[in-house]
């Protein structure tokens, strides 16, 4: 190795008397070109710079495995296979998590669908959602010109007959939805108070259900239609494919009743 350390340097050349300081010597070497021996030093330094730059360039390139030793390559492979094992284990774990989440989501979606179905059913029953479907439209015209011949009694009978025949949704005059709590009474001046809303003739009753059954249910001797005709009114029953009931009632929380034990 290098013997350039000053201790064992053989035959030191006599130093110029004026240049006692190393700094001065360096300055002199830079300012006075052509000092003997600098040429060979320049050549060696050029070789060094060339080799260093080449090595840096080669190191920058992406061929670190080129010319690598066998032991190093084995080490690389071991590291890589260990890493891939870890990654595979992680993949399996994540897949299990994903499957669990997926089945969770599916069951949750089923629960949501069932809840939505139940909400729809209950909403139609309670009259809190609009409804559409096959049904009939009964138009009752009071021949007396609103004198009140047809009143709460006849309407109640008609509603009962419709419910009997399986009407699912009933609406009067396109503005009052008939639900479980609906009350009907005469106002005394020819109108009928249904759930706090006054309706007058002509009465229009929309009912959703099997249209044939509903129409037949009203039309029998002593039934709604005949009683209306007996009172001098006219009633018209039309079976429709598409009865639209838009009116709804505001759901009210029960003040007194509470759910009891089932079964």
């Amino acid at each position: 190795m290098s013997d350039q350390t000053p201790d064992d340097h053989p035959a030191p050349r006599p130093t110029p008397p004026v240049q006692a300081d190393g700094r001065d010597r360096l300055r002199a070497a830079f300012t006075k070109p052509g000092v003997r021996g600098q040429a060979i030093v320049a050549v060696l330094l050029a070789v060094l710079g060339f080799a260093a730059v080449t090595q840096v360039k080669a190191n920058d390139k992406d061929d670190q495995y080129l010319g690598a030793r066998q032991g190093d390559l084995v080490q690389y492979i071991n590291n890589l296979s260990l890493a891939s094992q870890r990654t595979e284990a992680e993949i399996a774990k994540l897949q299990r998590t994903r499957d669990a989440l997926r089945s969770d989501t599916a069951s949750r979606r089923t629960a949501v669908e069932r809840a939505q179905q139940q909400a729809d059913t209950l909403g139609i029953l309670a009259g809190t959602v609009p409804a559409v479907g096959e049904g009939i439209r009964v138009t009752v015209t009071d021949d007396a010109g609103g004198s009140g011949a047809v009143g709460a009694d006849q309407l109640l009978n008609g509603l009962e007959e419709l419910r009997d025949a399986g009407a699912e949704v009933i609406e009067i005059n396109d503005k009052v939805r008939v639900v479980a709590q609906t009350s009907v009474r005469d106002t005394g001046d020819g109108g009928v108070m249904v759930d706090g809303t006054v309706v007058r003739a002509p009465f229009v009753i929309d009912a959703i259900g099997d249209s044939h059954t509903l129409a037949d249910a009203l039309d029998f001797s002593g039934g709604f239609l005949s009683s209306v005709r007996d009172l001098g009114g006219k009633a018209d029953v039309r079976q429709l494919d598409d009865v639209r009931v838009a009116s709804v009632v505001e759901p009210k929380a029960a003040r007194y009743a509470q759910p009891g034990p089932t079964g």
Binding site: D3, Q4, P6, T15, R23, G37, L44, L48
Partner: peptide, 28 residues
């Protein structure tokens, strides 16, 4: 490259000490 760097630094030190010799440098 590292070995050559070592030789160069050794030579620079010897130069500053005033005992630099180009023949020794080349050989080292």
């Amino acid at each position: 490259v590292v070995a050559a760097l070592d030789a160069v630094f050794g030579a620079l030190r010897a130069f500053l000490d005033g005992i630099f010799d180009d023949k020794v440098f080349v050989v080292s």
